[in-house]
């Protein structure tokens, strides 16, 4: 029983990390149909900027705020200088731009920062919380709680604000949205800003657990993307459920089956789920018009 609880705790820890990264994919996709492969770099930028700010003597809360603002600015810049000039290009071309951006940001980060691993102090101390023979770090709960808060805020925003409705309208039909007077360019830019901010927050919160370095983004983006797809891309709730599910599968596979093949088990299950539910757990099937 104790070991089962420990596996759950590990699954929640890792899953919450994936969920936070997956959430970043959601909003940009919703507004523009783009899978932003530079999302992992937003996560890296959040963590690394905070680390280097604190090393320079800036107090942690201020460092974290600066990191979030800086990453948001980079997100906006990515849209304005790379995505917007290529307006009208196919989805694959736009995705390729985000891949180029991710290589660029990674390449720049290794010069501006360094190529070593770094950590941050956990928010609520490093002493594990014990329950039923299992131990979980308070920081894992912080990550989990943040994912919940972000999902709630996203839902409130989309559902309850005019701007949110504009995002929905843009997602549903860009042309129609423009016809009724929505500045879709602004909406997409806004989605890049928020996604970058979510990424930066994720980066700051997970660094005390997972550590960070200039190239941490690649694998996080890969897992986050998988989580977002498993949950159904475009659904914030799906992103969180997808992330937690993958985290759980990995933990249980490592605990009960084989730690060598835990990633393989995770992707096998994703494959099987998608074969039976082709639009992901919470995704809506898109109807192709002819």
């Amino acid at each position: 029983m104790a070991e089962l609880l420990q596996f759950v705790s590990s699954g929640l820890t890792v899953g919450a990390i994936y969920a936070l990264v997956a959430l970043g994919f959601t909003l940009i996709y919703k507004a523009s149909d783009i899978i932003n492969f530079a999302q992992g770099e937003f996560v890296m930028l959040g963590g690394m900027t905070t680390v280097f700010m604190t090393l320079a003597g800036v107090p942690l809360p201020l460092a974290a705020s600066i990191a979030i603002v800086a990453t948001t600015a980079i997100g906006v810049a990515l849209h304005r200088f790379a995505i917007e000039p290529a307006r009208g290009a196919s989805a694959v071309s736009l995705i390729m731009i985000t891949i180029g951006a991710s290589i660029f940001l990674r390449g720049t980060a290794q010069i501006v920062f360094d190529r070593r691993f770094h950590s941050l102090p956990p928010l609520l101390g490093a002493d594990p919380i014990h329950f039923g023979g299992a131990a979980i770090l308070p920081q894992s709960l912080v990550v989990l709680a943040s994912a919940t808060v972000i999902v709630t805020l996203l839902w409130l925003f989309i559902d309850r604000t005019l701007l949110g409705k504009a995002v929905l309208a843009t997602a549903a039909n860009r042309l129609a949205a423009r016809l009724i007077g929505i500045d879709t360019r602004r909406i997409v830019e806004f989605s890049f800003a928020i996604s970058a901010a979510i990424g930066a927050i994720a980066g700051i919160l997970i660094t005390p657990i997972a550590l960070t370095s200039y190239d941490v983004g690649t694998l996080l983006a890969l897992k986050g993307f998988a989580a977002a797809m498993l949950g159904g891309i475009g659904s914030a709730l799906g992103a969180v459920v997808g992330g937690l599910l993958i985290g759980m599968i990995e933990a249980f596979a490592a605990g009960y089956l084989s730690s060598n093949y835990k990633d393989a088990v995770a992707f096998l299950i994703i494959l099987v789920v998608l074969i039976f539910i082709p639009q992901g757990l919470f995704g809506r099937a898109k109807i192709e018009r002819v």
Partner: peptide
């Protein structure tokens, strides 16, 4: 064992 970028090894 664990993967090169894993963030939690408590199950193992």
């Amino acid at each position: 064992s664990y993967g090169p970028r894993d963030s939690d090894m408590t199950p193992q």
